[in-house]
Design a protein around this nucleic acid. Sequence first.
DNA 1: TTTCTATATTCGAAATATGGAATATATTTG
DNA 2: CAAATATATTCCATATTTCGAATATAGAAA
Lengths: 116, 116
Amino acid sequence: MSETLRQFKAGIFQALAHPTRIAIVETLREGELSAGAIIEKLALEQANVSQHLAVLRTRHIVISRKEGNQVFYTVRDPLLIEVLDIMRSYFQAHIEESVTMLQEFEQMDNTESAKQ
Amino acid sequence: MSETLRQFKAGIFQALAHPTRIAIVETLREGELSAGAIIEKLALEQANVSQHLAVLRTRHIVISRKEGNQVFYTVRDPLLIEVLDIMRSYFQAHIEESVTMLQEFEQMDNTESAKQ
DNA sequence: TTTCTATATTCGAAATATGGAATATATTTG
DNA sequence: CAAATATATTCCATATTTCGAATATAGAAA
C-alpha cells in the first residue's frame, strides 16, 4: 500500500483521535444538528467546539450546510458510526483491562505533574 | 456515553493515527511477525519502529510474545481487524476525494514554504 | 445602518508527539 | 567470560495539537 494512502488513513484516525470529536460524531448519530445544538448538548466552549468541527470538516468526516444564520452538521458516512459501535463492544469485551489502561495513562499524567 | 469510553476510543484512534503504525498493523494482518521482520519489511530505522511498537503495545493494539532473542507481534483482537476492514471500505469509498484532499494539503505545504 | 445572534478564525502558551542518536537490556554464540 | 544479535529505552530538538481569549464574519432583526 502506498505511503500516500497510509497518510490519508492516518489523517482520518487522527481526526477521530480526540474525546470531544468522538462526542461530536456520536451526538450526530441521530441526524443533523446545528453547531449551536452540539455546543449545548456537550456543554463546551463555543470556540473549542468550532475548532473541533473544523478538524472534522477538513477531514470530510462531517458535512456542513448553511441555513441562514446557522450551520447544520451531519456525519458524512454511517460507516463511521458502525466503527464506533464496534469499538464499544471492544471496550466492553475488555472492560477490566481498558479501565486499567486508562488509569495507567492518568497515573502517567500525575507522575509528570509531580515532577514539577 | 461516558467520558471514559470516549477517551478509550480516542486512544485507539490515536494509536492508529500515524502512517508507520498503520503500516505495522497492516503488515501483521497475515499473522505473527518478529520485530526484526517488521523492520525489514518496512525498511525503517530499528529505534523508530520499536517506538511505534511501544505505542501499539501500550494501547493493547498488539500483543508481544518473547521467544529467545526475538519478540513476535500479533494484532490482539479480531474486532480490531474488523474495524480496520470497515475503515478500508471507507477509504475505498472516498478514495477519489482523498486524492483531491491530499493534493490540497500539498498545495498548502507549497504555500507555506513559499512564505519563507 | 446599527445591533444581535450564530459561527469561525487567529493568536499565544502549554502539552504532546515525533525522529534520530546514543545507550541499555537480554539472549545466544564462541 | 566476551562478542554478537535482537529489541527496547532514554535524551533532546523540533513539530504538532490543544485550549481559552480575543476577534472576525455573515446573516437577521430593529
